[in-house]
Nucleic acid binder design. Structure first.
Length: 578
RNA sequence: CGGGAUGUGGCGCAGCUUGGUAGCGCACCUCGCUUGGGACGAGGGGGUCGCACGUUCAAAUCGUGUCAUCCCGACCA
C-alpha cells in the first residue's frame, strides 16, 4: 500500500470527546469515525485490524472443532417470547416494528436463533455434540455508551453455541473453549486472566470472563485474584474470607434494649455515638428489584454487591431505592422512620435478604424503623423475622482473604474481552429443543455459549500497547507490519531503495506501506508512530553509505542494516509470527 | 432517570456580555522554497453559526421551545 493513496486521515489533536486511551488513539490516528453515540465506522486501517483478529478467532475456533455460520441480525419477537426474554431483556434490546407492524429486534446475542436452528436439525444423539459460531455485528442499546469501542452499542462479536448430550459433554466442551480462548488472546498479543463471573442476562450457572489487565482507567471491571493460588473472580462474583473482627457485642451491651440514638443517619455517626466498631452494626438497605422493594441486610463495614443481590432476589434489574420510595414503603408498613433507622423488624410481605456473614453476628445494633432510635444487643432470632433469607450478597473488598488459600486478595482493573457460559438447558427446555437418545427418549440439549468482543479486543489491545506517540500494535493484529519511509522522495537513490524493499517485502508476504508522500520526515515519523506500525524502515542520507535504519515500535530499538539485510530480517520475523 | 456543559467549514476553537451580516489554527487547492521528528512565504476554495418560532430596521449574538452531543451522578442510609 502506498501511503499517498491510503484512505486515512490522522489528526493533529485527540478527539475532544475521547476519555480513554484507545478512544483517543483510534480517533486521532484515523481508525474510527463516530456516527452516533456508541456507533462507529471502522475505517480501512481499523477494518484490517478487526479482520486479523477475526481470522485468529476463526482459525482457533475451527481448530477446536466449531463450525462457522451466519445468523440474521434482525429477529422476530416470537422466538424471544419462546425463551421468555422478550419481557425480561430490558431496554438494551433494541426493538422495532416492520412495515406490517410486526415486532422485531436487533440481535444483541443469538441464543434464541441458534436454538431454533438447532432444534430443527439436531434430532438424534448421533448428531451431537455440535459447536456453531458466527462473527457479526451486534446491537445493544446501552444506557450510556462510552469509551469508544470499549462500550459501543453496535460492535463486532464472535458468538459460539455448543450442544451436548449431557452435562459431562458440556463440561468437556467448556474446557475445550477455555483452551481455545487462551490461545486466541495469546496470539493477539494480549495478556488475559480467566476469572469466575456472574452469568448476567445470558443466564446459566457457571461462567468465566477473559480479562485484559491494563494500567489504564479503561477497565470497567474489578478483578480480585490471588497471587498464591489460581483464584480469580470478577467483583460481581468474588467471594472471600473475612479477617477477624468484632461481631459479638456482649462486651458492649449486656442486654437487648431500644435506646435513643438522635441524628445518627450514617453508620459512621452511629458507631461514634455508641462508641462501638461498625462491625457490630447491622446495616439495612432498601433496593428496588424489578420494581419490587427488597431489604438487604449486611454487616455495616461491608458493602452490598448489587448483582449478587439481584440474583438472590431472582430479578433482572436492580437499583437502590430513592428516599421517596423508602418513605412510601415505610408508610405502607405503618412506620415513620427516615433513612438511617430502617430495619427488618416488622417488615412483612417483602423480601428480606441477609448476607451470609450476618448469621455470625451476635448482640448487634439494628434500626427498628423508628427515627432516632436503634436496638442494641439484638439478635436476628429474637427479632423473629420469618421472611428472612440468607445469601452471599457481599462485595469483596481489598484486604480480604482468598477463599481457597486464605492469603490476602489483590484487586486490579480488567477489560472483559471474552466470556464462556454453561447454559445448561436454560434455552433448550423452554424452546423445546430436544434430541432422541438410544432408547428413543427425548432430552433437551445441554448448551454452552462463548463470546468474544472482536472490536473490544482491538480497543483493549491499544489500552495495553501504547505510548505518548501513539499505538504499538502487537504484530499479529497490526493493520500492516512495516512502513518504509523515504526521507526525501525527490532523492533518486532513496526512492529506488525504498521501492525495491517495498516490492521485495510484498513479494514475501509482508504487509508493507510505502510512505511516498511529499511530506517532511517529521510528519511521516509522527504518523508512523501514531498509526502504530510494528516496524519502520527509514531510507535517508545514510543510504549513500549503503545503510537504512530499522526501528522497532514496541521497544524503540534502532539498528543500521543494508537494505537486503533489513528485508531478510523483516521477512524472517513476519514468517515466524504467522 | 437526575445534575452540569456544549452545539459556529472535515478536526480543534474564538466571536455572543454591549445585535450591524463570520473569524483563527490544523486539514484541503495553487505557486515558490524546504526535506531526519507535525517547516516557511504568498494566494485560494469551503460554513444559510443544530433546528423552529419570536423580538428587532437588523440575530451566531436577545427570548421561548425543541433536537442533538459530551461529562458526572443514580443516593451503600
Amino acid at each position: 500500500m502506498k501511503m499517498s493513496k491510503m484512505f486515512v486521515q490522522t489528526l493533529r489533536e485527540y478527539p475532544s470527546d475521547a476519555e480513554v486511551i484507545s478512544h483517543k488513539m483510534l480517533g486521532r490516528a484515523g481508525y474510527i469515525k463516530k456516527l452516533a453515540p456508541g456507533i462507529y465506522t471502522f475505517m480501512p486501517l481499523m477494518w484490517r485490524v478487526l479482520k486479523k483478529i477475526e481470522n485468529i478467532v476463526r482459525e482457533e475456533m475451527d481448530n477446536a472443532g466449531a463450525q462457522e455460520l451466519l445468523m440474521p441480525f434482525v429477529q422476530p419477537k416470537e422466538l424471544w417470547e419462546e425463551s421468555g426474554r422478550w419481557e425480561v431483556y430490558g431496554r438494551e434490546l433494541m426493538r422495532l416494528k416492520d412495515r406490517h407492524d410486526r415486532d422485531m429486534c436487533l440481535g444483541p446475542t443469538h441464543e434464541e436463533i441458534i436454538t431454533s436452528v438447532a432444534r430443527d436439525a439436531l434430532k438424534s444423539y448421533k448428531q451431537l455434540p455440535v459447536n456453531l459460531y458466527q462473527i457479526q455485528s451486534k446491537f445493544r442499546d446501552e444506557i450510556r455508551p462510552r469509551y469508544g469501542l470499549l462500550r459501543g452499542r453496535e460492535f463486532i462479536m464472535k458468538d459460539a453455541y455448543s450442544f451436548d448430550l449431557d452435562e459431562a459433554g458440556l463440561d468437556k466442551e467448556y474446557e475445550n473453549m477455555a483452551r481455545a480462548y487462551k490461545k486466541i488472546f495469546e496470539r493477539c498479543g494480549l495478556d488475559t486472566k480467566m476469572v469466575q463471573s456472574d452469568s448476567g442476562a445470558i443466564g446459566g450457572s457457571v461462567s468465566h470472563e477473559f480479562m485484559v489487565i491494563t494500567d489504564t482507567d479503561a477497565g470497567e471491571n474489578d478483578v480480585f485474584y490471588c497471587n498464591d493460588c489460581d483464584y480469580s473472580a470478577n467483583s460481581n462474583h468474588a467471594i472471600s474470607k473475612l479477617p477477624d473482627a468484632v461481631i459479638d457485642g456482649k462486651d458492649y451491651f449486656n442486654k437487648r434494649e431500644i435506646i435513643d440514638t438522635p441524628n445518627t443517619h450514617s453508620i459512621e455517626e452511629l458507631s461514634k455515638f455508641l462508641n462501638i466498631p461498625d462491625t457490630l452494626i447491622l446495616k439495612s438497605l432498601v433496593y428496588i428489584v424489578d420494581k419490587q422493594p427488597v431489604i438487604a441486610l449486611i454487616r455495616a463495614d461491608k458493602a452490598v454487591e448489587e448483582t449478587k443481590l439481584m440474583n438472590a432476589a431472582g430479578g433482572i434489574e436492580i437499583r437502590i431505592a430513592s428516599s421517596a420510595e423508602i418513605a412510601e414503603l415505610m408508610a405502607e408498613k405503618g412506620f415513620e422512620a427516615v433513612p438511617g433507622f430502617i430495619g427488618p423488624r416488622g417488615m412483612k410481605n417483602i423480601k428480606i435478604i441477609a448476607d451470609k456473614t450476618v448469621r455470625d453476628m451476635k448482640n448487634f445494633v439494628v434500626g427498628i424503623n423508628e427515627t432516632d432510635k436503634h436496638m442494641i444487643g439484638a439478635n436476628l432470632t429474637d427479632l423473629r423475622i420469618d421472611n428472612l433469607e440468607y445469601a452471599d450478597i457481599r462485595l469483596v473488598q481489598q484486604g480480604e482473604l482468598c477463599p481457597q488459600c486464605g492469603k490476602p486478595l489483590q484487586v486490579t482493573k480488567g477489560i472483559e474481552v471474552g466470556n464462556i457460559f454453561k447454559l445448561g438447558t436454560k434455552y433448550s427446555k423452554p424452546m423445546n429443543a430436544v434430541y432422541t437418545d438410544v432408547n428413543g427418549k427425548t432430552h433437551p440439549y445441554v448448551m454452552g455459549c462463548y463470546g468474544i468482543g472482536i472490536s473490544r479486543t482491538a480497543a483493549a489491545a491499544v489500552e495495553a500497547h501504547y505510548d505518548e506517540h501513539g499505538i504499538k500494535w502487537p504484530i499479529a493484529i497490526a493493520p500492516y507490519h512495516v512502513v518504509i519511509v523515504p526521507v526525501n522522495i525527490n532523492d533518486e537513490l532513496q526512492m529506488k531503495t525504498s521501492e525495491k524493499m517495498y516490492h521485495d517485502l510484498q513479494a514475501a508476504g509482508v504487509e508493507v506501506v510505502l510512505d511516498d508522500r511529499d511530506e517532511r520526515a517529521g510528519v511521516k515519523f509522527k504518523d508512523a508512530d501514531l498509526i502504530g506500525f510494528p516496524f519502520r524502515v527509514t531510507v535517508g542520507k545514510t543510504i549513500n553509505e549503503g545503510f537504512v535504519e530499522y526501528k522497532i515500535r514496541e521497544t524503540g530499538e534502532q539498528k543500521k542494516y543494508t537494505p537486503e539485510e533489513a528485508t531478510l530480517k523483516l521477512i524472517g520475523i513476519i514468517k515466524a509470527v504467522k
